[in-house]
Amino acid sequence: MIEVRNLKKKFGDHTVLESIDFQVSKGEVVCLVGASGSGKTTLLRCLNLLEMPDEGSITIGAKTLKFGGGSVRRNDIKELRRFSGMVFQSFNLFPHKTVMENIIEAPIIVQSRPKAVAIEEGKILLSKVGMLEHQDKYPDALSGGQQQRAAIARALMMKPEVMLFDEPTSALDPQLVREVLKVIEGLAKEGQTMVIVTHEMNFARRVSSKALFMDKGFIVESGKAAEVLTNPKEASTREFLALLDDD
């Protein structure tokens, strides 16, 4: 489903990702954990080319792209993006559109689906994330948790092979976190392939089949989520988890 090989990314002369390799199979839920600045966001953004990697290759679904040999063609970028849906820490709903308009915009404009069909599918997804009753509201009138659930529905509308989440709950008030995690957990049960950057360790242990631990641009430990996040082998992983358990 996803295969990343020897991926490198620099900002100026600061190397943020050093030779990243990993695979995600269909239906797998992978969580990406690690200290602040270790490169998790950058890795996730490389997966749908919001950041352009400097070297290596990425395969998602049926599309493989190699980097480092000249610039990537615009059509290739578009094709690779088709296979992934992104959920941002800060939701990024379109504030000038209602919830329903937010989620049907891309299917209509990008995939040329008929509006009526898009609305029908939109209703199904909105009820799945518990947002059907809010379909005519503007994002400003919604709580953070509601906005994030709408943003998840918006990404799902494109029927992505894999969903990418970058700390989907860290901009939320504590009491709103659970409603969003529940939605993500529901997706996991349905077999949606996902890569999730999160600091919610209990949630990560519960939903993910695999965990990748990042440190200074490397994946230093990977394996079954329960093992990596409970009995890590590496010292840096243990240190990181100990820090989180302090509070």
């Binding site: 749908n48 992934s84 992104m86 941002f88 379109f94 915009e105 891309a106 404009i109 494109m158």
Partner: peptide, 23 residues
Amino acid sequence: GQNEAAKALGFDRWQTMSRIVLP
């Protein structure tokens, strides 16, 4: 964030400008 959300959904530059940014 608005630009990136649009890009991630597959909008091209013109669609992002005309449907998301300009309005």
